[in-house]
Computed example of a mutant assay.
Amino acid sequence: MSTSSTLAKGAQGTLSTEVEQEILQLGERYRDAHQATELGQLIRDSRDKLNNLSKAKSTKVIKTLLNHFAKIPNSLNEQIAICKETSEWAKEQKRLFLKQSLESRLVALYLENRMFTDALHLVGPLLKELKRLDDKMMLVEVQLLESKIYHALRNLPKARAALTSARTSANAIYCPPLVQASLDMQSGILHAEERDYKTAYSYFYETLEGYSSQDDPLAVAALKYMLLCKIMLNQSDDVNAIVHGKLALKYSGPDVEAMTTIAKAHQNRSLNEFEKALSAYRSELSEDPIVRSHLAKLYDTLLEQNLVRVIEPFSRVEISHIAQLVHLPTDQVEKKLSQMILDKVFHGVLDQGAGCLIVFEQPATDHVYDSSLDTLRNMGAVVESLYEKAATLS
């Protein structure tokens, strides 16, 4: 190789490094100034210049610039648009690894933006591609995203199936602690959906340990879900012990305070305290979809228990009086009493004209109907057996 060609390559390498540094520095300025539109335009304008860099370097630059969006508030739509455009560009440039990485990121962004249909349309072909190329690490991440999408759509069987596939793929490789913690988190969430709070608690504990070892902020969410499981198991006494434990102490804050307040309200069987906690810690409780759905069930159970206790001494009572005793609006109490009558929690009828609830005595159970059904079922089995034997004899 001649000296002139060596110098030319060295000069080109130096120039490429300078271009890379300029792009990254400008990206940092836009990030710090919270200029999402300008950051997106920078990524668009940088594509031609990135063609002069090696594929590894250009991939690193694009990923770094996209990561800057996480520090810019209200930039989700801009991030989705630029990620989609860059994915198409990577496909045209035949940069397969970058395309897959961007599509995986795009699925996560669709999920965050609740664009579930778009996410499912993208995740299907991406999974087929990753399975064909046997990229296990990215396969685990995309299968986990698929499980989260189906969970958000309330399709629990498919969410469990996707999670099982992700765990199977993860068993074949070394799984980084954060990915393992994410798998444990999703397992805990799905078990909690099935009301298996004991198993869910153990998964959330594993999640807390995993995130805590990496100083990841999601450890707070894992701790919050642990406390939620204890409350749902009617073990509110254990909440304080967990909160003051060695592992949980460094995560004290509004999220933990919110759950301890809910635990105290549940322990006192107080709807008033429960509602005050929901109002005081709205962002920590009501804005978390996992916590919100389970606390809605808990509130419903607590309301039911309070109403049963209040109406127990009465055979006829005004609905407004019941509402006054439980400190709730009359309409809400009337609706709940109607539901409880339909669910046969107690026997009674609502006299809406008089605004009263009439409570009946618990009727004696008549087992004649059940016994008759059992007799008919057994007779049917005998006839079927005789028919089969007759068929063999003939």
Rank of each mutant, 00 (worst) to 15 (best):
R31T: 05
L24A: 11
A221I: 01
E388F: 06
Y174R: 09
R195C: 12
V310Y: 03
R195N: 13
K84G: 05
E275S: 12
E78C: 04
N52S: 12
I43R: 02
T64A: 09
W89A: 08
A56P: 04
Y110V: 15
S187T: 13
V317P: 09
S371N: 12
S252Y: 13
K335N: 04
S270K: 04
S46H: 08
T17F: 02
L295D: 00
L298E: 07
D370A: 09
A200Y: 02
K63S: 07
R114F: 07
N378Q: 13
L65K: 05
N52G: 14
L126T: 01
Q143G: 01
L357Q: 02
L302W: 07
T375M: 05
K230C: 11
E287L: 10
Y174F: 14
R195E: 15
D216V: 01
E88Y: 12
K99A: 08
K148S: 04
L223A: 13
N113S: 14
S385D: 05
A192M: 12
V326A: 03
A391K: 13
S104F: 03
L15Y: 10
N77W: 03
I242T: 08
A8S: 06
L130F: 13
L249F: 04
L76P: 01
T3N: 10
L139R: 01
L130K: 01
N52A: 07
E20F: 13
V383S: 05
A108F: 03
Y174Q: 14
L325F: 05
S286G: 03
K9Q: 14
A323Q: 13
S320P: 06
A219H: 01
A108Q: 04
H244G: 09
D331R: 13
Q352F: 15
T207F: 01
F204D: 02
D237T: 03
Q186E: 10
M138Y: 05
D331F: 12
L109P: 00
H321K: 14
K158R: 15
